[in-house]
Amino acid sequence: MELFLNQVFSGLATGSIYAAVALAVVMIFLAIDHFNFAQGEMAMFSTFVCWALLDAGTPYWLAFILTIAFAFAFGVVIERVLFRPLHSAPVLSHIIAFLGLFFILNNGAGWIWDFTIKPMPSPFPEGSISGLISYHQIGMIGVVLVMLALLFVFFRFTSVGLAMRAAAQNPESARLCGISVGWMIALGWGMASAIGAVGGMLIAPVVFLEPNMMLGILLYGFAAAIVGGITNPAGAVAGGFMVGVLENLVGTYIPFVGSELKLTVALVLIVAVLMVKPSGLFGRTTVTRV
């Protein structure tokens, strides 16, 4: 029982990071209709910025806030410079651009900070509550939940949030209501980048900081987004927690999976959901008028 609870709690903790990454992916998907393959690398790059700030002696939470601000501006700039010119380009152009961004960030981070694995400090105390869940894991879940609450308030109760939702739903109509859809998309990129950065900073103490640290996490993030429904931000968050717990339970209780085949679970999940229920658990089915 203790093993089970332990696995569930740590699943929820990593799940919170998958939820953050999935939410970032969904936000960009809703804005531009494409999966951002570079979402993880954007988060990794921001995490390195945080590490550099900490290395220079910045207090943790100040570095945390500064990194979020950096990630936001970074996302806006990437949209303006790279994806705005592509907005009516075909899918393949987007995929190539995402892959290009992926490799630029991955190698760029390696070039600037080199590829050696670095320990990333945790802002939370060491130790755990009776061996079931560590303080860092509680902190991860807590920070992500606070972030989700803030996002909910932003989208539900502010006019910018409302304008962003309108722009994602019906861009033409939103323009006629006086909403600058281009800037709403840029704002979406900035927010997605910042959300990813929070995920990156929280998971780095667990997986250690290096340019490839987000690879597996992004895969689980994709799985979470697809399980939850790629068109539903709340679904993606729920999907994140579900995938986190599932990953741990499968790894623990199905002997041949173990920790080596854990990543395969994400891929199996993606394929299975796409085959059985492509709109995900909470997504809406799109009907195209012919």
């Binding site: 006019s159 304008a163 939702r165 309108a166 019906n170 909403i179 709403m184 704002l187």
Partner: peptide, 22 residues
């Protein structure tokens, strides 16, 4: 905006008047 409420739709209509820039 089909997935927004009636009230939200109408509030968006006031957007241009109430927000100089984002």
């Amino acid at each position: 905006f089909g997935k927004l409420s009636v009230l939200d739709n109408v509030m968006i209509g006031a957007h241009a008047r109430t927000t100089g820039n984002f």
